[in-house]
Amino acid sequence: MPIRRLIRGGGVSYRLTHWATIYGGYAEANRAPTPAELSCAGPENACSLANFFVGDPELKQVRAHTFEAGLRGGFTIGTAGRLSYDLGLFRTDADNDIVFINSETLNRAFFANIGATRRQGGKVHLAWQADGWSAWLNYTHTDATYRSGFVEDAGSNPAGDEDGDITVRRGNRLPGIPLDKLTGGVDVRVTPIWTVGGDFLLQGGQYLFGDEANLTPRLPGFFVLNLHTSVQVTRSLQLFGSISNVTDRHYYTFGTFSPTGSVYLAQAPGATNPRSYSPAAPIGGFGGVRVTF
């Protein structure tokens, strides 16, 4: 069975003033390859769907070393309200990281240890609590990069070289991880029993899976807005409702490359663009009753 266990770790915090505490920590963890990864762990074992279970490990365990430090606290501004904050920096270095590498066989790939990767950046959390309303804001900057280079088959990536390969170099960004992400929200108590609010997500672009060498344009960033409300009818009974993606924004949460010449696409006959996106859900509403015993 795959395991994830903490090898060792620790942290420390020190209160500088009544409104600020400095903290730091270190953790070291490992992850054993999963059965799905082990069943598809080499060029000769490339697969389109990893669905076998094996007991003889073909891959090294991933080991991660994480450092984190920051400043957090809060203070009250007269009768206006209270501001809480958490400012931090982090870095996780992973050794023997496992990635899904394209095979020379069409529509197949395999898992392999590719060396080191790094995820580092900073985070900001702000929360405001006042009489009758509250608000929060989160920002994360994540610089996720390969620290070791490797060569893989380009698959359906049109940016492959004359040999049909792409070369991933030290410093190339990991696909699927946006550099910047901002979330926030606000809740207002209109009456003692009625609350309305909203939240948003603003996310930057990300490289497509299959473009580990960062040779093609990134998946576009997006902004999405959601609204919600609730009425506390009694102490135990609450009515609630929400609207997601209020502006019906068309955006994509995942991107990769798909074959167009060798596979017929009934929904897009004659397609030549191999970029394939996963669309997000359109505008939607939801409501219900919540009972607390």
Rank of each mutant, 00 (worst) to 15 (best):
G11F: 12
G11L: 00
V12Y: 04
Y14K: 00
Y23K: 00
E28W: 05
T34W: 01
P35V: 13
A36P: 01
E37P: 04
E37A: 12
G42R: 06
E44Y: 04
A46Y: 02
C47K: 04
F52Y: 08
F53P: 02
F53V: 14
D56A: 14
K60W: 05
Q61C: 01
R63W: 15
G70N: 00
G74L: 12
G78L: 04
G81C: 03
Y85A: 00
D86P: 00
G88C: 00
D95N: 10
N96D: 15
E104C: 07
E104A: 15
N107V: 05
R108D: 05
F110T: 01
F111R: 08
A112E: 09
I114G: 04
R118I: 05
G121T: 06
G122M: 03
V124K: 00
L126K: 00
W128V: 10
A130L: 05
D131Q: 13
D131G: 07
S134W: 06
S134M: 13
N138R: 08
N138A: 10
Y139H: 01
S148N: 11
V151Q: 10
V151G: 03
D153W: 07
G155Y: 05
P158F: 13
P158H: 07
A159T: 05
A159Q: 07
A159N: 08
E162F: 13
G164M: 06
T167Q: 08
R169Y: 03
R170N: 12
G171C: 03
R173C: 03
G176I: 12
I177L: 11
D180N: 14
D180C: 11
T191R: 06
D199N: 14
F200Q: 08
Q203G: 03
N214C: 09
T216L: 12
R218M: 13
R218V: 02
L219D: 08
G221F: 09
G221S: 10
F222E: 09
F223L: 11
N226S: 08
S230N: 14
T234W: 00
S236F: 05
F240W: 14
F240P: 08
S242V: 06
I243D: 08
V246E: 08
T247P: 00
Y251M: 06
G261E: 15
Q267C: 04
Q267P: 04
A268N: 10
P269I: 04
T272D: 14
N273R: 11
Y277I: 09
G285N: 01
G288W: 11
R290E: 08
V291D: 02
